[in-house]
């Protein structure tokens, strides 16, 4: 042990002073720092590029015609034409999707948190909800195609698109709701039980209302997410250039498929419409996104 007191050759410098960190270590530290900053810049560049090109190219056709007219009778080369039919389609499809997905998802989350109790079924459901978040959206479309259109014999419709989007929306909403339900203090449940309130009323009138703002936030984020889905819609709502306000019958348009269609046409007039479609879609998504975040923030300040 006596060796400890005698500094030996290749031991770190122990002169009288604090000393310095070796240049090599410092340089390495600086290089990593530079790389880390670079990584962040690498992510921001495409983001800004995407937002900038969508904005600058999209403003070209952001006019009244775009919002008031469909593409009915408008050729790829023609100026004018609009996305009215697509906007109507998207809004209807997303509304239908939410109407189907939200009750299922919220009930599933209630099951996982309030009833499942970590049992085998609950664990399986929880695991597959996670796995479901990874299902490629095109597979959801293929499933609805195989079940709804090919097996049950229904035709292309906005509703078929909603069914596909439902599969994509459920896991997101389940996760968000689950998180919120877990945040509800157990005291609240116990207080309710102590008053002799049955369990289902406790869940419906105590637990869910407490978690509601958080659930709504989660639903809005999920809506923003499915709104931009294209692939499943190609297989389920198909294409139309005309206005179809009935989501239950006949092909419908949607903003993403509108962009897909217009971008597939090499004429500049079509490309312009595609960019404007992209701008409108991003604005819609941002609206839901920011709305959700605003709601979350408002709720947070209230609860404190």
């Amino acid at each position: 042990m006596s060796t400890l007191t005698t500094p030996s050759g290749d031991r770190p410098a122990l002169g009288g002073s604090i000393g310095a960190v070796s240049a090599g270590r410092k340089i390495k530290d600086r290089i990593v720092q530079a790389l880390v900053y670079l990584a962040f810049a690498l992510a921001v560049v495409p983001l800004l590029s995407v937002l900038w090109t969508v904005l600058s190219n999209g403003l070209e056709r952001l006019d009244g015609t775009f919002f008031y007219y469909s593409m009915n009778g408008v050729g790829g080369r023609d100026e004018g034409g609009g996305a009215y039919h697509a906007i109507v389609g998207t809004l209807e499809q997303v509304a239908l999707t939410s109407a189907i997905a939200v009750p299922i998802a919220v009930l599933t989350a209630v099951y996982l948190v309030e009833y499942g109790g970590g049992g085998r079924l609950a664990r399986a459901v929880g695991f597959f909800v996670d796995v479901m978040t990874g299902i490629p959206s095109i597979v959801a479309g293929l499933f609805v195609l195989a079940l709804w259109l090919l097996t049950l014999g229904f035709g292309f419709s906005g509703f078929a698109g909603s069914l596909a989007l439902t599969i994509l929306m459920i896991p997101t909403v389940v996760r968000a709701t689950e998180e919120m339900l877990k945040l509800v203090p157990n005291d609240l449940r116990e207080a309710s039980y102590a008053l002799g309130v049955p369990r289902w009323r406790t869940v419906c009138f105590v637990v869910l209302p407490t978690a509601l703002p958080g659930i709504v936030t989660g639903v809005m984020l999920a809506v923003a997410r499915v709104m931009g889905e294209t692939a499943p819609l190609l297989l389920t709502i198909f294409f139309t250039k005309a206005i179809n306000t009935n989501p239950f019958e006949g092909p419908q348009a949607a903003l993403p498929t509108f962009i897909w269609e217009q971008a597939g046409d090499p004429n500049q007039a079509s490309i312009d419409r595609a960019w404007t479609g992209a701008l409108v879609l991003i604005l819609l998504i941002m609206l839901f996104n920011l709305g959700a975040r605003l709601l979350a923030r408002m709720f947070r300040t209230v609860s404190r």
Binding site: V50, R225, G228, E229, T230, A231, A278, I282, I285, N289
Partner: peptide, 14 residues
């Protein structure tokens, strides 16, 4: 939050 169709458009044209 940017939808994939927009990445597609950007990827194709930009």
């Amino acid at each position: 939050a940017v939808p994939s169709i927009v990445y597609g458009l950007w990827g194709l044209l930009v």
